[in-house]
Nucleic acid binder design. Sequence first.
DNA 1: TCATGTGTTGTTTTT
DNA 2: GAAAAACAACACATG
Length: 546
Amino acid sequence: MDAATAATATAAAAALVWFRKGLRVHDNPALDAARRSAARVYPVFVLDPRYLRPDPAAPSPGSAHAGVARVRFLLESLLDLDARLRCLGSRLLVLRARDDVSDAVCAALKDWNIGKLCFESDTEPYALARDKRVTDFAAASGIEVFSPVSHTLFDPAEIIEKNGGRPPLTYQSFVATAGEPPKPVMEEYSVLPPIGDTGGYELLPVPKLEELGYGDLSQEYIPPFRGGETEALKRMRESLQDKEWVAKFEKPKGDPSAFVKPATTVLSPYLKFGCLSVRYFYHCIQDVYRSAKTHTKPPVSLAGQLLWRDFFYTVSLGTPNFDHMEGNPICKQIPWRESEELFVAWRDGRTGYPWIDAIMIQLRKWGWMHHLARHSVACFLTRGDLYIHWEQGRDVFERLLIDSDWAINNGNWLWLSCSSFFYQYHRIYSPISFGKKYDPNGDYIRHFIPVLKDMPKEYIYEPWTAPLSVQEKARCIVGKDYPKPVVDHEAASKGCRRRMGEAYASNRLGGSTVKGNSSNSSRRKLCHGGQDVPDSSKSKQPRKRS
DNA sequence: TCATGTGTTGTTTTT
DNA sequence: GAAAAACAACACATG
């Protein structure tokens, strides 16, 4: 045995599984590779202080990056992962990074003399940069790295390559390129290799919210969804049990006002953290389809939803500046309006439109709301009423949603703001009639906005139209107990349509039309700068995500 | 290059 | 009450 072979043999003795997303045991190729190739396996999760430290200045409980509902969901998921690893004779090693997560990982690799590092590949820009620091260190230290794709059905990079180096920009072309996804890795095993010596590391349990500095939180910030793989699998099985419901599922149909029993599976947060394997879920849905006489098809079917998820992952990987308007080649350049006052009213659920406000309050408290409810408020903020930049709305969703997912969130904001993918800007969700057709009595509004609970149903969607005597009887005076509408929807949406038309025309010309000096007809591919952007936003640096 | 087909998910009024 | 039509009109990826 030569020196190199000996080194490899030693190296293979210890493997570190770095959990980030993919907080599960089932269908976990990184964990599977580690257990097969090493005598000792260190399952690690690193707590990121920049992600978890409470921010008292934030507009709602939580850190600068995550609302408390998602922090809680993460901790629950870690606790469950630890429990499941313990069932296999192992445990989760929770490390606290002092500053940068990658530094903590590199230190552990070195201190524990790790020979093989296994982690699930992640395509988000933040993750790519973080992971590169670690893989560079591993390469320099002779540590083998195994980084499989298992967060998505397909390998986004592979799809881009298959499509000639560019991401497919329509769902249909994506589906045509993608084919069938790989099967999940579901081999049963009853024991994992033991963890090795951890040296001077203090082995901490998964922290409680209070230990992270989240003190007195009211009960209202506890969403009705518990994190973790165990809960994910239970929830999936419950959803799939109703085979007829699965076979007939059509996304555009479904009641956004249903909150006691949501109209969708609410598996998105479990997919976001990888508590549930998307490949396993897809596979189980196919099983149900095989047992059904007929079933719906993509894009509207349940399986079709998972393909949408992969679609956005693929486009986001292949598009520069995907999370910005400027410098994003697929994003229309639109001179959105600056208004802190209107933005804050929207963010805090004080627009005076109960349907909009109830949704934003559900977001703040639960970190989850129905897909069409998200559409309503996203349309309202951007092209529908307030004409405010989608990046501002994106930031709010990104922080508060428990299923907040970089690719999907940005993709949907591009979509809803008619900045990309979807362009029919004259189709505007009414903040009054859209909710009413699902929930004429306004039960959803009454639940999330208690001050309106006694408003008669005739006025619940438009309380400012209620006669004063009615407002008094309902103990809710508009302008005092509940805000007046921040804009008049009729006028605002009309103005938005007009401005969108102008912005589109300006994009077609490929230059500024308002300010003249439209020299050439550069294609949209090249567009950034030179657009009809007011000075206020033009002079600004690209919005920093906080 | 350009014609073509397609696009998850609007609202309001009429039948 | 459900379904269809009218409304006012489209953008653009794909091949």
